[in-house]
């Protein structure tokens, strides 16, 4: 799913209490896994909250809400950011960042991030690709395409690096993107 579908999704306790909404999605480049979310209040004039939600505290990520056991699972946002930052981070927003191949080619600008929740590994949530506004290099300038990512991600927040072979696995819709990600990672694994 796209992370744009997750932001602004309400965070609801099992008691049915609407405690917050998702603001940012935090992920660690070192392993590409989602560490958690920063939160904002639900009212019209509510701003960002000081508490965040670690992925490990999420009971379920549904189409209409993020479910948690109760409001006590929320943690200070700093703690969640520091846990993800352990792999060496910048804390920058990747939306709007430039994607470069390791051959030095500008592939486009990130407009969205694609994540996958793997039920087989206990609901682990990984970043598997970017939706980019393609550059001329992809032959589809201005068009939004999906580009898969390897297991580990090189990024600074200003530039996001992907292997040059990712160009061969670019897709246009989410329906077949999972297979493209698997094929891309299998190719990388076989080549290394």
């Amino acid at each position: 799913m796209r992370t744009s579908e997750i932001t602004k999704r309400p965070v609801v306790t099992m008691a049915g209490e609407d405690v917050a909404q998702v603001k940012d999605i935090i992920y660690a480049a070192g392993g590409g896994s989602v560490g958690g979310f920063t939160l904002a209040g639900r009212g019209l004039f509510a701003g960002p909250l000081k508490e965040g939600l670690a992925w490990s505290s999420v009971s379920a990520l549904g189409a209409d809400a993020v479910m948690i056991r109760d409001e006590f699972v929320l943690q200070p946002t700093k703690a969640i950011l520091e846990a993800s930052r352990a792999s060496g981070g910048s804390g920058a927003n990747v939306l709007g960042s430039q994607v470069l191949s390791d051959a030095g080619l500008d592939l486009g600008v990130v407009r969205d991030v694609i994540v996958s929740v793997d039920q087989a590994t206990g609901g682990h949530c990984d970043v598997v690709g970017y939706e980019i506004e393609a550059s001329e290099a992809l032959g589809t300038q201005g068009e939004k395409v999906l580009i898969p990512l390897p297991d580990t991600i090189a990024a600074s927040g200003e530039h996001l690096m992907v292997p040059a072979s990712a160009k061969e696995f670019v897709g246009r819709d989410l329906a077949g993107f999972g297979a493209a990600v698997d094929a891309f990672r299998a190719q990388l694994g076989g080549a290394s």
Binding site: T7, Y27, R85, T152
Partner: peptide, 28 residues
């Protein structure tokens, strides 16, 4: 309202600047 909407606008924060290889996946 515009200021509050801007403060509430979300994104995707990356907390990693290195590319330590974990297992599958890697450069050719």
């Amino acid at each position: 309202l515009a200021v509050q909407a801007r403060r509430r606008r979300g994104g995707v924060i990356i907390d990693g600047g290195s590319s330590r290889r974990r297992g599958s996946g890697g450069r050719r």
